[in-house]
């Protein structure tokens, strides 16, 4: 196994982590499996393309603009689509399982992508102002670009920062309170709507940053870049243990490593077979993910 392979696995794992962190944040707090997350990432990438190609912003600004754009898109999803449907649902029917967000977020993703296609006509783009990230560093036989470093650092810092915020700050406490019990949190003076919009915004903003970095890393932005990541995001978040950021990080790098190594020795279809086969086995051995808490079922199965 070459050192390049490990480097590639680490970069890929960081991409997965950047994508999955925002996904986990929303799932952990609101039990919403946001199938629009891929589309939101794509939206961020395109906002970034506008800032980069048309406005000529330097890459730092582009990242901020893309984060705001994607964050706003995700907050819109929460405020205009998810919450009204949940309200409607709650008024007719109290407290049961709710699968509606799956369809609602999926549809929202389709709308975002459809409007993007309509606007950009499915043409693909590349980022131009990326000279700052193109610098290669050589460590012995290994060449690492400043872009690779930026992605790895970004992924780890953003995930670490987010866990700190959730664990230590007042804002994080508000999120945890709303996650636990919406009614109780509002009785304690937390405004659940503000908290959920903010959480969705942060989640979307991370997806936007991910979109720009992926766009630069892969030298291409088109309307399908989110599709592939969505499936893996879905998988990583679950295998990590739903809602656990540390578990998500472990799962992201683990999946990337399995995938990269398998890819070096087998053809692509076999790679997916190995990745998903491993996944199935992992869940059979650890039914609540790598770091997941015991589910409701724990007592019934008498483990």
């Amino acid at each position: 196994m070459s050192i390049d392979l490990i480097k590639n696995a680490i970069v890929l794992g960081s991409v997965y982590l950047l994508f999955a962190t925002g996904f986990t944040l929303v799932f952990g707090s609101f039990k919403v499996m946001n199938l629009a997350h891929g589309a939101i990432m794509t939206l961020g990438a395109f906002v970034g393309i506008y800032a980069d190609n048309v406005l000529g912003f330097p890459i730092g600004f582009t990242l901020v603009v893309a984060a705001i754009g994607a964050g706003a898109g995700n907050a819109f999803l929460d405020a205009v689509i998810l919450r009204p449907i949940a309200r409607q649902s709650a008024s007719t029917h109290a407290g049961a399982e709710d699968l509606n967000p799956i369809v609602a977020t999926l549809s929202f993703g389709t709308i975002v992508l459809g409007l993007l296609v309509q606007t950009v006509k499915a043409v693909d783009f590349t980022y131009k102002q990326t000279d700052a990230l193109a610098k290669p560093f050589a460590f012995g036989g290994l060449t690492v670009s400043s872009l690779d470093l930026a992605i790895v650092v970004c992924a780890i810092v953003m995930t670490g920062l987010l866990s700190l915020i959730i664990a230590k700050t007042r804002a994080g406490m508000a999120v945890r309170a709303v996650a636990e019990d919406r009614a109780m949190a509002s009785a304690l003076g937390v405004r659940p709507n503000v908290v959920s919009a903010a959480t969705f915004f942060v989640s979307g903003a991370m997806a936007g940053v991910c979109g720009v970095l992926v766009g630069i890393l892969y030298s291409n932005v088109n309307v399908t870049i989110g599709d592939h990541l969505l499936l893996f995001g879905f998988v990583i978040v679950t295998v990590g243990g739903l809602g656990s950021l540390t578990g998500t990080a472990i799962a992201a790098y683990l999946v990337a490593l399995v995938q990269t190594i398998a890819n070096a020795y087998f053809q692509a279809a076999a790679v997916d077979l190995i990745v998903f086969g491993t996944l199935l086995l992992t869940l059979l051995i650890r039914p609540n993910g790598i770091l997941g808490k015991n589910a409701l079922s724990a007592g019934i199965a008498r483990r």
Binding site: M33, F234, V235, T238, V239, L242, A269, A270, D272, L273, F276, G277, L279, L280, L283, L284, P287, N288, G289, G292, A295, L296, S297, A301
Partner: peptide
């Protein structure tokens, strides 16, 4: 029988993996 002890999203991902494994076996 295999996924009987899983619940919720974990069951979803395990069965999703099953479908993708079937699809890949067919492709290979």
């Amino acid at each position: 029988a295999l996924v009987g002890k899983l619940r919720g999203a974990y069951q979803g991902i395990a069965t999703l993996s099953f479908v993708l494994v079937v699809e890949r076996i067919i492709a290979l």
